[in-house]
Design a protein around this nucleic acid. Sequence first.
DNA 1: CCGTTGACCAGGC
DNA 2: GGCCTGGCCAACG
Length: 104
Amino acid sequence: MKIKYQKIYSLLKQIPNGKVTTYGSIARKLGINPRYVGKIPSENSHPDIYPCYRVVRSDGHLGGYTIGLKNDVSTLEIKKEKLIQDGVLVIGLRVHKSDIVELA
DNA sequence: CCGTTGACCAGGC
DNA sequence: GGCCTGGCCAACG
């Protein structure tokens, strides 16, 4: 495995239902920079195959959600809805602090 | 090899 | 909460 795509996917799967994690958490686990974590799904444009929507920023902001199209507010709305359906409390473009779980 | 870019982070204001 | 700055690692041309 050349790149670390697969590792990010693995970490994504271990996010508990109804919870979210942060890019920084994933990045520190892999020893890479957080900026690169978000780059993977943005290029691949995963619609709803894997829970990329369960990843938010460290301050609770949703961050971004690129699904082939541009990273728009409408895409963030989709991400927000998915989180809510998972039982995550989302206020505006932010998730409740206690719903963010650090990966062990 | 170098510069640019990226769904970021921590710290200040 | 919002905006700015410096820093971080990896991929790409």
